[in-house]
Design a protein around this nucleic acid. Sequence first.
RNA 1: UCCUCGGUAGCUCAGUCGGUAGAGCGGGUGGCUGUUAACCACCUUGUCGGCGGUUCGAAUCCGUCCCGGGGAGCCA
Length: 455
Amino acid sequence: MRTYTKIRQLLARQPLGETVRVAGWVRTRRDTGGFSFIEVNDGSCLGNLQVIADKRLGNYEAGIKRLTAGCSVEVEGTVQESPARGQAVELVAAEIKVVGWADPETYPLQKKRHSFEFLREIAHLRPRTNALGAVARVRSRLAYAVHAFFQERGFIQVHTPIITTSDCEGAGEMFQISTGQPSGGPGTDFFGRRAGLTVSGQLQAEVYALALGDVYTFGPTFRAENSNTSRHLAEFWMIEPEMAFCDLAGNRRIAEELLKYLLDDILAACAEDMELFDRFIAKGLVERLRSVAGQDFAHITYTEAVEELQHSGRTFDFPVRWGIDLQSEHERYLTDEVYRRPLVVTDYPAAIKPFYMRINDDGRTVAAMDILVPGIGEIVGGSQREERYEVLERRMQEAGIDLDDYRWYLDLRRYGTVPHAGFGLGFERLVQFVSGMANIREVIPFPRTPGFAPC
RNA sequence: UCCUCGGUAGCUCAGUCGGUAGAGCGGGUGGCUGUUAACCACCUUGUCGGCGGUUCGAAUCCGUCCCGGGGAGCCA
């Protein structure tokens, strides 16, 4: 096996005079009288490596001069200081091997900007563009940082099931799964009961939290909603910490620490990619994220939010009164106009929240929290869980839930119950927030939306 | 799912009153230059989203379906 130098390392170290071998894809080629400039990108970083290909190279006419965008090459050469502006170093090629051709008549990526809508149609080629490559690197680093944050704090990662037979109220419609050979009614063919793809790992995460203390999940989640928006997917990834001996305040603190940790990390670790987003995707992004990481999140209760909206002097399409769920226009007013930073809203009316959220002492609100961020809206949803057996059982009955299906969940309160809390952080919404990408379909490699799952 | 705006060349778009389709970019060929959104010349490009209807005639008008953007709901 050959070893190659990653262009990221090469551009960072600038090993002048050294002979190195790189491998990647041609972005563009420019010819001069005696030689050609070839821009090679290997995906390790945003920047391309400028390769100098002299016409005396053996395959200059037959190979090098036919190189176009998308061709794959291996280049061996000497690193030298670049005499021209635009790059510090360049690679003077001693040998250029064409590994794979890319017919320029049909290769869809051109050396110009493409719309994200078009790129979405070629999901198999779009990571070769600057923006989508940057998204992939940032996404990967964020995932790494999520694990780092929790592992540093002693959280245990739990792999909650993807196939599940329990719903999580308030989390949307489940995809039903089947082998296609029903034997005892719809959806009962394999597991003997209706099964589906998980809409949340929360209920199972609670099981492990009440054994291991602090746990988190980080996995795919599925919602069979007919949602057609820039912030919804049918398949997405979610991070769900669950902490035993923890109340809503502790929950809120962890969520805020997590988000700030992730922002600090990504700004340092992916500076070049973040600069691209700042310049071409969302002007002022880096400064905005720095400011978010550097100050406390705002916090108001639902009741305070309602009062603030009612006294705003605004007329909303949906009139505000205590008891309604906050609409997008309300959330956007609060985050984008009033607070201009992440806003935590807590203690929502019990009537609009799921059964597992803990009833507050006032009897009419629950210990819930949403974290809303400017431009995107809800990025985190969580709560302290109802740990009192009788209260939970009553809430489940009121919600019309079959208690027999959830005995195991009630048992957690029957045997050694403790106050506990957790939240769900939508990973793609996080990547959106960090990258400034307007549409969630651009921050997951292969988006699944109603009527769309090409590969 | 609802409201709204769109779908024309590989891409981004223009297309008048219903009269038979254009530009820029890309691609090809040649030229020039330590180039880098390269430059200059010439050449190349169509199921006008699908189906049906109105009409002598439809990219254009009507119906319907599909897909996309923006907004809403559902939520992360």
